[in-house]
Design a protein around this nucleic acid. Structure first.
Length: 426
RNA sequence: GUGAUAGUAGCUCAGUCGGCUAGAGCACCAGAUUGUGGUUCUGGGGGUCGCGGGUUCGAGUCCCGUCUUUCACCCCA
């Protein structure tokens, strides 16, 4: 019989890797909780329409879909935000606002695997629903940076590049662009960092036929600061949008992460549903794809048949994050280990040793022992292989005066102690 | 979906011009020291050389296809 392989783009989490994953997920959960978010979850599959409603039919080729026995079209979740919107919609009138929810869903996308992108991964999501305050956007960005900063990543290591969809739209409109032309410019800006200036001009010439509009648009890549962009804001709405983004930066500075944040007009987040401030977090070298991305999406609940409710949030995947942390040497040494390994000094002491194992366990500490009756050397080897912190020897003196020998394996120091004292010290 | 890259033991790899029964290190298992490990010594298991076809007296090696890996593009919620 041939062996059956794992599906491409998926990972097996052997204990060593599982420890890393747990460490990452625990960090996400802690950061969420200390920033005032509460956890939720939902099914790993949904009606296909939940995703096509938001992203269009083209999305179907990029997710894993299936038909159930009743002929219903379903899909494994490629993201959790539509489910979040569905859940919020269902209880919209009874949930106290702002709703600050987080989740760490396992997601699947039918992608071609490459660096930082797999077909199955975990993604930390934090969302704030029911507030249109710029403070919510600030808190969303702060939470993501707070987590990364907590791992020891400095403003030298990472940067949150921030812009605003609504601001860009108002600027473009004040330049004379029509609503239906906006997506073209978004997509151009998004591609800009990947192509040469000449190639960029060529793309612009191709896609924006009106020469004066094109000339206006080509001013955008030159924009480096919010002051630059303010000079381009010709209309009142545009000025207001710039002012809002300035306020966001002021708040982020007040929160103490100003040095992690940088205005970048190129951040448009694809053609997604974003309606306001948007951001992506990168490594400073920008050799990796974004480790985190998010922004304001005020129309999603409406798209799913709910009322108009403002929302903002972000997602952070585990794949790029792990690569980044490995590169930066920020992954801790993690090893599964046990507290006590109990060794018998002879077959006739084994019952007593086994009893001690169970007593240690009932005190809430981990304990293990060898299944084979072997000499001390072998049992010590096993204790070492299992990375036990202490070895406990049960011998003649245990039978005679209820004493055991406890040896700290790292230092080699050992001492005799009564079983009673030992157990009460646990 | 497009292009490139690679695929030999659990892992990292060697394998000459196509030629005996395909190797090494690490890992794993077992022995050697009869109350002390992590760092000794000895031995062992484990491979249809990704899979399928072709060329050849003979294929890990050459050719074609296919699957998978890695990387980039498209896309990126």
């Amino acid at each position: 019989m041939s062996k059956i392989a794992a599906i491409k783009g998926t990972r097996d989490f052997y204990p060593e890797i599982m420890a890393v994953r747990n460490w990452i997920v625990d960090g996400w959960k802690n950061a969420s909780i200390r920033n005032g978010f509460v956890e939720y979850d939902c099914p790993i599959f949904e009606y296909l329409e939940l995703y096509t409603r938001k992203s269009g039919d083209e999305i179907v080729s990029q997710l894993f879909s299936m038909t159930d026995r009743g002929g219903r079209d379903l899909a494994i979740r490629p993201e959790i935000t539509p489910s979040l919107a569905r859940m919020v919609n269902q209880q919209i009138n009874s949930l106290p606002r702002p709703i600050k929810w987080f989740s760490v869903p396992r997601l699947c996308r039918a992608e071609k695997p490459q660096k930082g992108r797999l077909r199955e991964f975990f993604q930390w999501n934090c969302d704030i629903v029911g507030s249109d305050s710029i403070l919510a956007d600030a808190e969303s960005i702060y939470t993501a940076v707070d987590y990364l900063r907590g791992l020891g990543l400095t403003a030298e290591d990472i940067v949150a590049r921030i812009s605003s969809r609504s601001m860009l739209a108002e600027i473009l409109k004040s330049m004379g662009f029509a609503d239906e032309q906006l997506n073209t410019v978004y997509s151009l800006l998004d591609k800009m960092p990947k192509v040469s200036p000449d190639a960029f001009k060529e793309m612009a010439t191709e896609q924006i036929t009106d020469p004066s509009l094109r000339e206006q648009m080509l001013k955008l890549p030159v924009v480096k600061t919010l002051d630059d962009v303010e000079a381009l804001a010709a209309s009142e709405p545009a000025k207001a949008a710039v002012a809002e983004l300035c306020e966001l930066f002021d708040i982020l500075s007040a929160m103490g992460i100003g040095d992690y944040c940088k205005f970048d007009i190129q951040i448009v987040r694809g053609l997604a549903y974003y309606t306001g401030p948007v951001f992506e977090i990168f490594d400073r070298k920008e050799s990796l794809r974004a480790v985190c991305g998010g922004g304001r999406y005020d129309s999603l609940l409406t798209i799913l048949g709910g009322p108009q409710v403002p929302a903002t949030g972000f997602g952070m995947g585990d794949v790029v994050l792990e690569i980044l942390l490995r590169e930066k040497g920020k992954l801790p040494e993690l090893s599964g280990s046990i507290d006590y390994f109990v060794i018998d000094a002879g077959k006739e002491m084994f019952d007593r040793a086994l009893k001690l194992v169970c007593e240690i366990r009932s005190h809430g500490r981990s304990a293990s022992f060898s299944y084979k009756r072997q000499n001390l050397g072998k049992q010590f080897k096993t204790a070492d292989a299992q990375k036990a912190a202490f070895a406990v020897i049960v011998g003649e003196e245990t039978v005679e005066n209820n004493e055991i020998t406890v040896k700290e394996l790292a230092t080699g120091q050992q001492q005799k102690i009564s079983v009673t004292d030992f157990l009460s010290s646990l």
